[in-house]
Nucleic acid binder design. Structure first.
Length: 276
DNA sequence: CAAACGGCCTGGCTGC
DNA sequence: TGCAGCCAGGCCGTTT
């Protein structure tokens, strides 16, 4: 499940594969992946060149000539890879950008959750999800004060508040569990009841964890691969996610797995403090 | 307005 | 072996 470190790794590995290439045509094998008008998507992209790739939180922004941007969200299992355009379509290949040099950028997504949308560059905020995003870890806007203020307005669990993207943008289920363990905060703690001091620690841990995960090229737990088909390396550093029943690495207490508003949540019942 | 919840999807796993 | 049922979970639209 790509979260911000995985999406950043995709951005870095994909860019050199496609930068400067010109789109000849777009094949939509499963049009529902396109959140904007599919016909307009294919017609507008013909003849456009890949200029660069940016990222905002978990969104990839493919910058094209003609002031166009493809906003792409991989959701759970979306993947990009470069192929020969004539290669047979795989079972879960849904979109192909055919380049003038005979190669093709394939979008593959087993669960079909991912979405792409074509917007005019600079108007990305018209995309529903982007309009509601808070600040990214390790960005200038992500200050301790911003985290404290954001959480003060959240009458829900810290787990839920970190997953909703409106205060901190880019964390998903894995890194939220990891950072709450690191910060010794129980996932069911109410976001607006956690002390300023504790939120300060959480802030520092979010920045450190995300930076480390990006340096490790993300986490592969189920099916995540970068644009070169490589796995990440952070999974070996996970402390709680996927380790339910094993002893906490700090205190030895068996880690527990619970549901927090429908999401699997692993934590240490002994050393993660409940604020309520 | 914020919070909660069902739906979207397929494959892997469990239990009968 | 077959198969129903559950789980994985980010985000969106709808309801509360």
């Amino acid at each position: 499940m790509p979260e911000m470190p995985e999406v950043e790794t995709v951005r870095r590995t994909l860019l050199p594969l496609i930068k400067g290439k010109t789109i000849k045509e777009v094949k939509l094998w499963y049009p529902k992946i396109i959140a904007s008008d599919p016909l307009e998507f294919t017609s507008q992209l013909a003849g456009k060149k890949i200029v660069t790739i940016d990222r905002y939180a978990k969104y990839l922004l493919l910058r094209l000539s003609g002031q166009l941007t493809i906003v792409s969200h991989l959701r759970m299992e979306g993947k990009y890879r470069l192929v020969r355009a004539s290669d047979p379509k795989g079972k879960h290949d849904h979109v192909q950008f055919v380049f003038t040099d005979g190669t093709g950028l394939r979008y593959n997504d087993v669960r079909k959750f991912g979405r792409m949308q074509l917007v005019k560059t600079g108007t990305e905020k018209i995309v529903t999800g982007i309009s509601k995003l808070g600040v990214e870890p390790n960005s200038s806007g992500f200050t301790k004060a911003a985290l404290v203020k954001g959480m003060a307005g959240k009458n829900k669990s810290i787990k839920n508040a970190l997953l909703d993207q409106s205060v901190v943008a880019g964390l998903g289920n894995i890194y939220v569990d990891e950072v709450l363990w690191e910060s010794k905060i129980h996932p069911l703690s109410m976001a607006n009841q956690i002390s300023k001091y504790k939120l300060g620690q959480l802030h520092d841990n979010i920045n450190a964890l995300i930076a480390l995960a990006i340096a490790e090229r993300g986490t592969t737990v189920h099916t995540y691969l970068d644009a070169n088909g490589q796995t990440g390396g952070f999974q070996k550093m996970l402390r709680v996610y996927g380790h339910q029943g094993e002893p906490c690495q700090r205190c030895g207490t068996p880690l527990e797995k619970i549901k927090v508003t429908g999401r699997g949540t692993t934590y240490c019942p002994h050393c993660q403090v409940l604020y309520k």
